[in-house]
């Protein structure tokens, strides 16, 4: 789930307003966008990208490793299932408010065809200095810079703030993995943590969590086995129970998904949990030690 420049990216819904805006941004940053999909405009070119009628046709003609969709909720399932059937390895689902039973069908199709879904309701993936897929401000130099710290975030806006804080402190990022704010995600915090643990370009990991669900607790289980330093911030300490905090997944019901439970699980696994976003850079620098700091800042 770390995107690379060589990965062939197909944009679903490329001709819409957002599809157009973000495809131009992705291409300008270095993303290898090889095709766009719109059944009504197959054969045309849009923002310099050839358009195909379906992901399967694009995969056959130019290849397709990654698909990213700018698709409204009612059509999101069909687009995702088609992409999985076309054999894309990684499917980035940006759409928020997809009917839950459609999300289940997307995950079932992905499991059947060996596709990894990131999202739904993710802001996407960034490999600073190389490429990005989704709707993150990879191209804003105050936010992202290449480096050796991996960042996992449920939220796009908060993930942006965290990367900004790191960059300000001179700490660059190896990868930003936006996993999404929905209750049923294709890629969990734990999955992303495992990928960053195995990534040779990553020396340390920042986990940006949220109240609700059990993903941070599950990630803590894996964190116990890791040697790389880890720092976490969990949003929602001040959130009242029983209210959905914007993200469908961010709700505390009973003791499930509470701030205290997540913090405790992560701390027990050796993860440093900070109280405010700007404390992350300091905590991370301390965790990396002198040599690691040197390495992180010198990139």
């Amino acid at each position: 789930m770390i995107v690379r420049k060589k990965d062939k990216v197909v944009v679903l819904g490329i001709t819409g307003k957002q599809g157009t805006f973000w495809t131009e941004k992705m291409i300008a940053y270095g993303t290898n966008v090889v095709a766009g999909i719109n059944p009504k405009r197959a054969g045309e070119t849009h923002v310099g990208v050839p358009i195909f009628a379906s992901t399967a046709e694009a995969a056959k003609a130019v290849g397709a490793d990654v698909a990213v969709g700018f698709i409204p909720p009612p059509m999101a399932k069909d687009a995702a299932v088609s992409a999985a059937e076309a054999g894309v390895k990684l499917l980035v689902v940006l759409t928020e408010h997809i009917p839950a039973q459609d999300v289940m069908a997307m995950h079932a199709a992905a499991a059947k065809h060996g596709t990894r879904i990131v999202g739904p309701n993710t802001a996407g993936l960034v490999t600073p200095g190389e490429c990005f897929v989704g709707i993150m401000p990879a191209f804003v130099p105050s936010v992202f810079k290449p480096g050796r710290v991996g960042v996992i975030s449920r939220s796009g806006s908060l993930g942006t703030l965290i990367c900004l804080n790191l960059t300000r402190a001179g700490i660059g990022q190896s990868a930003f993995i936006g996993i999404g704010g929905d209750p049923m995600l294709g890629t969990t915090t734990r999955d992303a943590l495992e990928a960053l643990d195995k990534d040779a370009g990553t020396d340390a990991v920042v986990i940006v969590g949220e109240i609700g669900g059990g993903m941070e607790e599950a990630a803590a289980e894996y964190a116990r086995t890791m040697k790389k330093p880890m720092v976490a911030f969990i949003a929602g300490a001040a959130a009242p129970p029983g209210k959905k905090m914007g993200h469908a997944g961010a709700i505390v019901t009973g003791s499930t998904g509470s701030y205290a439970g997540k913090r405790k699980a992560l701390e027990a696994a050796g993860v440093v949990v900070v109280d405010t976003p700007s404390q992350i850079a300091t905590a991370l620098a301390a965790g990396l030690g002198a040599a690691g700091r040197q390495r992180a800042v010198s990139q």
Partner: peptide, 26 residues
């Protein structure tokens, strides 16, 4: 964004204040 809005509420609490609302325009 939901994450940033919750965080803003958390930081208000952190500095001894009390948030008056959750409202996100993400």
């Amino acid at each position: 964004g939901a994450g940033l809005t919750m965080t803003t509420m958390d930081v208000i609490r952190h500095f001894g204040g009390k948030p008056a609302n959750f409202l996100e325009i993400g």
